[in-house]
């Protein structure tokens, strides 16, 4: 977790980090939305299909399996505009986790989860995909620090 006092400082540091880990980057950010004309499963499976030429049936099964981990199997065929904030965040996280040896970066996650008071949800989400990710990094503002450290689950 890295916290910054200003947007400029955060952006500069984030860009440098992204550039450094470009090969295995799995970015979760409102600036890189889901593809609106693809269903949820396809947004998640796309990474493996493109980089590993994984057959769509296999990629879809993997996506469905991940969605089931989050208890979200029902949204498998839905599009991004019909998802709530938690679902949207989880799908973005699952997509990022599809990158091989993923370096998952959460760019100001509370811009997506603006309805959540603290980061317990984030920790839970990470736990569900930790077998797929190599590293996880959070970039946020200093004034959001309390949302991460205020609860017990943040310590995990």
């Amino acid at each position: 977790m890295t916290f910054f006092d200003s947007e400029d400082a955060l952006q500069t540091s984030l860009n440098a980090f992204l550039e450094e880990h470009r090969e295995h980057l799995g970015l979760v950010s409102p600036d890189i939305p889901l593809i609106s004309n693809l269903p949820v499963w396809s947004n998640i499976a796309l990474i493996r299909q493109y980089h590993e030429n994984m057959p769509w049936e296999e990629a879809k099964a993997l996506a469905v399996e991940l969605l089931e981990r989050f208890g979200m199997a029902k949204i498998v065929e839905q599009r991004s505009h019909s998802l709530n904030k938690e679902e949207l965040f989880c799908v973005m996280l699952m997509r990022a986790a599809m990158v091989r040896e993923a370096v998952v970066v959460l760019d100001r996650p509370f811009r997506i989860l603006s309805n959540l008071p603290e980061g317990c949800f984030l920790t839970d989400a990470f736990h569900k995909v930790d077998d797929l990710i190599a590293e996880a990094h959070i970039f946020d503002y200093n004034w959001e620090k309390g949302r991460y450290g205020a609860t017990d689950c943040a310590k995990d």
């Binding site: 799995g26 600036d31 890189i32 609106s36 990474i47 493109y50």
Partner: peptide, 17 residues
């Protein structure tokens, strides 16, 4: 054009697609 407006091109770039 919609993908461009929605910045979905950045998504693809971010995942090296």
């Amino acid at each position: 054009a919609v993908m461009k407006v929605n910045r979905e091109m950045s998504t693809l770039n971010s995942f090296r697609i």
